[in-house]
Write a protein that binds this DNA or RNA. Structure first.
Lengths: 162, 162
DNA sequence: TGGCGATATTTTAAGCTTAAAATATCGCGG
DNA sequence: CCGCGATATTTTAAGCTTAAAATATCGCCA
């Protein structure tokens, strides 16, 4: 009834939705890995640390650990570890909030702000390059489709929201 | 010359390419996180282990550690660790290749094959659900655009290919 | 045939990540 | 004012991930 399978041939592993998901995942991982490698080689910095600094750079007043955790979409414990290392490098500063003794206010040091600017400029160029095979229309279309995906996903996850 | 910045307002952090990249990353992370959470809660299995089993399921003859590493797009050392834990759970088997003493041939045990089938069926439904807000046309368009992205990225990374 | 570059894998050290438990503080209702 | 649920953060244990070094085997070629 079916053709016989020869040698090490691989079977098609999944339905079309799973294939779409795998393509999305692969694509993202490839870009993420490439940026991670370049950040490490050029600046000896990791992607999470760069992300952490980026969050602070756009918040002149600083951010609390909780805000950082939500912005970066990682757990509280995670940001604690990253902050620990960035503080040891002298790139950020943590001080108790005046009003609420529970919260910590994190800010960039001058050194941190300067380091981030230097890296961000090059990083921006990398991202431009990686996407330069797409026309402006294609980029807009992709952004719009990703919004649609995000909305669709939110439909199935919003219940976990508090 | 510029409007003054008030309170904790955040500045727009990046150019349009970086925003597109962040949207792609966020979208992928959201889906990945949701699937990871569900796999853990429903089956007490991690995403990497599920991926590892999926690779083996479509290769009846088994795979070597190197093939697994390439298919999963992670380092050799990484698959060693995952294989260690899956073997401890009795889901996979590792034996020396007959011809080449350097290579290891990994196969699913009966238990592993059965466990994977059970999980894969539910997983497939989850992915279908998460993407059900998109029409067939939108999915095709997204898949096609992701291919274009992948090609564009490859243009800037293929030099590292050996 | 014997050594040497190439290939396959594991090991190691460091860091990222999560979930869950622990700690500390807040602020409200009685 | 006092206790208690809520909020902010850190700690802990386990696992994932990478890059680089170490180990082992292969196969060629001089």
């Amino acid at each position: 009834m079916t053709a016989d399978i020869t040698s090490t041939e691989t079977r098609p592993l999944a339905g079309p939705e799973v294939r779409l998901w795998l393509r999305l995942l692969t694509c993202t991982n490839e870009i993420e890995g490439e940026l991670r490698r370049r950040l490490r080689q050029s600046f000896d910095v990791t992607l999470p640390r760069f992300d952490f600094l980026a969050q602070l750079d756009r918040a002149p007043e600083g951010l609390t650990m909780g805000q950082l955790s939500r912005n970066m979409m990682v757990t509280n414990g995670n940001v604690t570890g990253i902050a620990e290392r960035l503080a040891a490098e002298g790139l950020i500063e943590r001080k108790n909030s005046p009003g609420d003794k529970r919260t910590v206010r994190v800010t960039l040091t001058d050194e941190g702000r300067e380091a981030f600017s230097r890296i961000a400029e090059v990083h921006h160029g990398w991202v431009e390059d990686l996407f330069d095979g797409l026309s402006v229309e294609e980029r807009d279309q992709l952004a719009s489709l990703l919004s649609r995906v995000k909305a669709s996903v939110a439909n199935h996850t919003e219940d976990r929201a508090e």
